[in-house]
Write a protein that binds this DNA or RNA. Structure first.
Lengths: 155, 155
DNA sequence: CTGCTATTAATACCTAGTCATAATTCTGCC
DNA sequence: GGCAGAATTATGACTAGGTATTAATAGCAG
């Protein structure tokens, strides 16, 4: 595992990214250098210590737990008049797309429309019974999808 | 904040559950007891130390990150013959239902069907163009939904 | 007042570091 | 070969947030 400083530091980056729990001592063994060298490397690359890294990962987890329940409606509702009309916005991120093509998966678009349609109805027990869907074009990662829902009073 | 041992320990449980990052010293101040008392309480309740708690939270996060990509197909695929037929199973959990009624939200059922339909097609770039959906009955939390996909060679 | 529980204190030790300083080793270059 | 400068290693003092152990003290019931 002996190598130049540059390669070691590059590998250090990716190793720590993949295994944030690894200590300096373990890294030192892995790269066959002293613990002090690892520490100098971390300094230069401004990589924090294990406990800090673990804390950061845990913080993300807590943030996500708090963010999830808001997702009852998929996409952000920007306008909602019960039994009238509603609009929601969904930003297509990496979690919505096929990893190969970066094109949004159909069910996420349906989910946005469906959850907005259910939200607009002023009834505790609104359920989807029927849906006729046409996907008119592809949506790519980074695009913003706007859903509009309205009530057809003639039905 | 002075109180009996029992109440303190109960509150300690919930406090730590809500704020896993809190140290014994901070807890001691919060409950107006000594640090040693907090430590005895943690022993009795078998609550690990801060760094251990943070590590556990972070571990969950990493497990989830690893679990997500498997979800490329929603539900578990139990049979797949490319360009022929496929079957997947989805267990309806609390994350799939309306919190009030415990009935599965339509877009999760669609997502299962849609992702299986896309998976069965032996093409890197299969996309959903059209869908006619009828929801024939409600699905409740705890139920298991089986999706079957087939290719219509006549189209 | 004795006995028991609860609480607090004191001490040694641990991990995984930081920070600063010094010594050593390696490398390129004339 | 010699030597400067970079890279590496070593050393010692200090930190947070603990564990584990032993001992002292406070409060109260019988």
């Amino acid at each position: 595992m002996k190598q130049g400083k540059k390669e070691r530091q590059e590998q250090l980056q990716t190793t720590i990214a993949a295994m944030p729990f690894i200590t300096d001592e373990e890294l030192a063994r892995k790269f066959a250098v002293s613990v002090q060298t690892i520490r100098l490397d971390r300094m230069e690359l401004s990589i924090p210590e294990v406990r800090r890294r673990i804390r950061d990962v845990a913080q993300q987890q807590l943030d996500e737990v708090k963010a999830l329940p808001i997702e009852e409606v998929i996409g952000e509702v920007v306008d909602l008049q019960l039994d009238e009309r509603a609009i929601s916005i969904l930003d297509i991120g990496p979690e919505h797309v096929f990893s190969r093509t970066r094109i949004a998966r159909g069910h996420h678009l349906f989910a946005q429309a469906n959850s907005l349609a259910v939200a607009i109805i002023d009834d505790q027990l609104a359920l989807t019974a029927k849906a006729d869907i046409r996907f008119s074009r592809q949506v790519n990662q980074g695009e913003r999808v706007i859903a509009k829902a309205g009530i057809d009073k003639n039905e």
